[in-house]
Simulated scan of single mutants.
Amino acid sequence: MEYSCIGLNDLPDEILMIIFKKLNNFDILYSFQGVNQRLNKIIQDPIFTSHLNFVKWLSHNFIDLICCDMILNRFCLQILPSIHHKIQWLDLESSSMKYVLKAVDYPNLHTLGLYNINEESARCLFTDKNLSSGIFKDQITTLFVTIDHNNETELTIIIICNYILTVFTSLICLTLYESSYKHRVLLWFDDPPLPTFRSSTLLKLNISVQCIEDCLYLLDGHFNQLHTLYIDIIDIYHQDEIQNQGDLPNLKCFSLSCESKTLAYNTTILPLLNRMSNLEELSLYLAVYVNETFIDGNHLKKNIINRMPRLNQFRFYIRSIKFIRNQIYCPSTEDIQQTFIDFRNNQIISYVDYLPEARQGRCHIYSYPSFMPYYGDITNHFPGGLFEYVRAVSLCDDSF
């Protein structure tokens, strides 16, 4: 049989589209833009041009795909000018973000991801008059920001947040988190927030904070249109200084996670949830010390579900811990599971560990499939399963 060689141009458009969909849009545009008219037409399809990601996630941090001046110049001078009107979403790293944003006009850009920024890069970018008075102010409705932890302080986080809320006046969705999971970046208010720390347009906020007080500050009217709040808290303790106790009628979706164990479930968390009578989606990922009984299905129905008539989705992982003083009645896994027999829309898993040496009982209850970020105190009673979103795990035994 005579040897034949099939080149890229010999393949039909449909096959090329299938191949290109398997590749990164960054690589496709850099490799094929300008090769010939046919390839230009294919790679300028909205599939490859509406969302450009110039950032790559490695094992513990983000890196810039624009790693040299040659790549930067090719994008800024040749590629972006030919597709700028098709771009709706850009993900950029701090070292090259200003060059890319100023290379061309982006008339349809509405979503922006800024990675590894610090106070200096934020100030440089957000005080640029052309950008701040143009696409930042009028176009960007969704913003993702990861903050580089190197030498950054809690004050720096507040400064960056103030920049964002001042400059992005059309912002609807904001996600703010750390560049590396190894270094937590937390919003923390030493005093009540400044009057400028507010937004009348923000509907969705995803953020990490230091303590429950910071969460309450965010819900004291600074974001009065907020309907979705995803919040991760380092420490939850009893508070009685924050006075905002009014209802939160606009809040429709709330997610609260905390890796640390808390004594303030009854005094702080339940009163906060009771302000959210119009909630439709709720996620709780908590470790709670209890005095008498474990948190089970009966407790959730009485204290949360029955108080939220519009709730239609409830995801949770709650680990309740109690010290065993009286062993007359210690509920079994079957006893706890029975309290979930009439739960709707969820598969509920529960199990109980009793640790005689530590004189502790631990009850794990969670909805499945799981979205929990933390899974603590795993013993050999762990029932198994797939946990795609867990980022922190702790193990224990009877001598713990």
Rank of each mutant, 00 (worst) to 15 (best):
C68D: 15
D69M: 11
I71S: 03
L72N: 11
L72G: 10
L72D: 05
N73I: 12
N73W: 06
R74W: 06
R74D: 13
F75Q: 11
F75I: 09
F75R: 02
C76I: 11
Q78K: 14
L80P: 06
L80H: 00
S82R: 13
H84I: 08
K86W: 05
I87T: 14
Q88V: 06
Q88N: 13
W89V: 12
L90I: 12
D91F: 10
D91K: 03
D91C: 10
L92W: 09
L92Q: 03
E93M: 10
S94P: 04
S94E: 09
S95T: 06
S95N: 15
S96A: 10
S96W: 05
M97V: 03
M97A: 02
K98F: 09
K98M: 01
V100I: 15
L101E: 04
K102A: 07
K102P: 07
A103H: 03
A103I: 05
A103R: 11
V104D: 13
V104G: 07
V104T: 15
D105K: 13
D105S: 15
Y106D: 01
Y106I: 06
P107C: 02
P107M: 04
P107D: 06
N108V: 03
L109V: 05
L109P: 00
H110V: 11
H110L: 07
H110M: 09
T111S: 14
T111M: 07
G113D: 03
G113K: 08
L114R: 01
L114T: 01
Y115K: 04
Y115H: 00
N116Q: 01
N116M: 01
I117M: 07
N118A: 03
N118M: 04
E119G: 06
E119D: 04
E120A: 12
E120V: 12
E120R: 08
S121C: 01
S121K: 00
A122D: 08
R123M: 08
R123F: 10
C124E: 15
C124R: 12
L125V: 02
F126T: 02
F126V: 01
F126M: 09
T127I: 00
T127L: 12
D128F: 00
N130C: 14
N130Y: 12
L131Q: 08
S133V: 03
S133N: 08
S133M: 10
G134T: 05
G134N: 09
F136Q: 01
F136A: 02
K137D: 07
D138F: 14
D138A: 13
Q139T: 07
I140P: 05
I140A: 08
T141G: 04
T141L: 10
T141C: 08
